[in-house]
Every structure is written in C-alpha cells, then in structure tokens.
C-alpha cells in the first residue's frame, strides 16, 4: 500500500467497510434465488389451501371429471393428470430411443468434426420456442396423422406427444452424451483388448458405466415433457378427457392453466384458485422428478480416477 503514512489506519478501515458493503450486496443477490423458491411455494400453498377449503382433497385427487368453470363444477384432477402423463409417455417413447442412440452416435461413433456439426444442430432443437413446435404440430404433424389414421381428432394427444418428444431429444442426448464421454478411455481399451467389437464396447461397457447419467437424463426429459405448455395447449386441445387413446383430444395440467388464465378468473374466485391447485400439483410432480434425477445421478454414479 502506498498510502501516505498518517492516514493508513483510516484508509484501511474505509476499505474494510467498502468490502463489507459489497460482500453484503453480493450475498443479498444470492439470497434472491432462495426468495424466489420461497415465493413460489408460498403463493402456490396459500391459494391451494384456500382451494381445499372449498373442495375436498379426496374429490380433487380421485374425481374423474374436470369441469371447474361450468355451472355445475366438478373438480376431479385425474383427467388433467392422465392428459399430462399420456403426452409425457408418448414423448418419452419418441425421445428416449432417439436421444440415447444419438448420444451413443455422438460419443462413440462420430469423429470430432462430424460431432462438431451434429451436436449444435441437435441443440438448436432445444432453442426453438415452444409456440413454434405447437404450430408445427398443428399444421404438419396432425394433418399427417389424419391422413394415416382418419379417425384422429383435429386436436389430439399423439401429435402433441410427437412434437414434445422431438423437443426433449436434445435434453436426453446432451446429458447422456456428457455421461458417456465421462467414461474413461481405459475401460473401452480394456474391452477392445479382450476382442470386443465397437458395438459390444458401446452397449456392454460404456452404456452400463454411464447408466446413472443416462437414467437421470431420461427422468429430466420426462419432467420437461410434463411441464411443457404451449405445444400441448396448441396441439392437444382443451378437452379434459380421462383416456389412454392418443388420437383423442385431451387437456394437460399446463393447458388448463393457460386456458383458464386466458378466460375470466377473478382474484379470489374458485376458478382462480383452481389455477394454483393444478399448478401446485404440477410443481410437486416436476420437482419430485428433478430431485429423483439428481439422486439417481449421485447415488449410482460410478467414480473413476
């Protein structure tokens, strides 16, 4: 320090004060993220409690009819849950094989140059706004489905599931690719040394070694599919429908929230509270899946030096 001798101490004190002020500001910024979580939980919780004062939780979780905005309202959430899970299951059927095989191709079969082209291309899929996927589903996939299977409704779960599946391919492929690439070279070389073919090395050595990351990517992808909103709102329709038939019009939890908030749901009304009750259900399910994905990743991780 080249401070002029006499003021050394007060200079240091001033400097310390400044350091502390900045430190506190930085801490408060980090605390904001915690505040957001507290806010989300508090808001969902308050309105959900208000909702359950009017509607019994048993009716909500076991009822098979969802007509909350009708004259004679029914508050059974099962049709919305089945809608969300139908779309998510269909999306998983598309995204899991495509994503995993793409990841194996990127990590095991393609050289750095091919990989450098393919990986960013796949990641563009993740950057396209979901409303665009909705448009694609409605104007391309649905007409295609209806030519093959004429009994398909204009709005149907299958079209939404296909498009959401495409949307989450990069989630699955990127995370699985990371997991596969984290498997040490020595393991592969050991297997080759025993005379294994590339196929055998990939499927019997590398994939099992990366299994925790791969499973975590599946769970995270499905969680994204459940939380997906615009594409399913546009393509799957707004018909709460307890069905496993993907060719019918359905409504997901997210699509209901959009539909209800586009309409007139005054603050404090039961319609307003249903938004948060459904939102809470959605939040709990996706949070549980995200936590499960992190747990799988940590619990079953193979450690290599």
């Amino acid at each position: 320090m080249s401070s002029p001798g006499t003021d050394d101490l007060s200079f240091k004190r001033a400097r310390n004060v400044k350091e502390q002020v900045i430190g506190s500001f930085l801490f408060l910024s980090a605390a904001v993220s915690t505040l957001v979580t507290v806010g989300i939980v508090a808001v969902l919780f308050t309105e959900t409690v208000a909702f359950f004062r009017a509607v019994s939780p048993v009716d909500f979780f076991t009822g098979t009819e969802w007509t909350p905005l009708f004259q004679n309202p029914r508050f059974g959430v099962l049709p919305l849950l089945s809608g969300s899970f139908l779309v998510a299951a269909g999306a998983a059927v598309v995204a899991i094989p495509l994503g995993l095989l793409s990841a194996i191709f990127l990590s095991e079969y393609s050289g750095p140059r091919l990989r450098g082209v393919l990986k960013p291309l796949l990641e563009i899929l993740a950057g396209i706004p979901t409303v665009v996927y909705g448009y694609f589903a409605l104007t391309f996939i649905t007409p295609l489905l209806r030519t093959v299977l004429p009994e398909t409704d204009v709005f149907n779960a299958a079209s939404a599931a296909l498009v959401v599946g495409i949307m989450i391919v990069p989630t699955v492929s990127s995370l699985s690719d990371d997991a596969l690439r984290a498997v040490p070279k020595a393991l592969r070389q050991g297997a080759y040394g025993l005379g294994a073919t590339k196929f055998e090395v990939s499927t019997r050595v590398v994939v099992p070694a990366a299994l925790s990351g791969i499973l975590a990517s599946f769970i995270l992808g499905i969680s994204r599919a459940i939380g997906e909103t615009m594409a399913v709102t546009i393509a799957a329709g707004n018909m709460p429908n307890l069905t496993l038939n993907g060719l019918e019009s359905i409504q997901t939890m997210t699509a209901y929230i959009v539909q209800a908030s586009l309409g007139d749901t005054p603050h404090g009304s039961i319609g307003y509270q249903t938004l948060f009750a459904v939102g809470m259900t959605l939040f709990v399910i996706t949070l549980a899946m995200n936590v499960l994905s992190q747990w799988v990743m940590a619990r079953f991780r193979e450690e290599y030096q």
Partner: peptide, 16 residues
C-alpha cells in the same frame, strides 16, 4: 435450490 429452480416449468413462474 438454484439447480432445482432451473427445472421448474416456466408456467409456474407465471403463477408467481
């Protein structure tokens, strides 16, 4: 908490 927030569906932020 931050890692989990990144996985919350965007519509839930809308409700907040």
């Amino acid at each position: 908490n931050i890692a989990n927030l990144a996985g919350v569906p965007s519509i839930v932020y809308g409700m907040l």
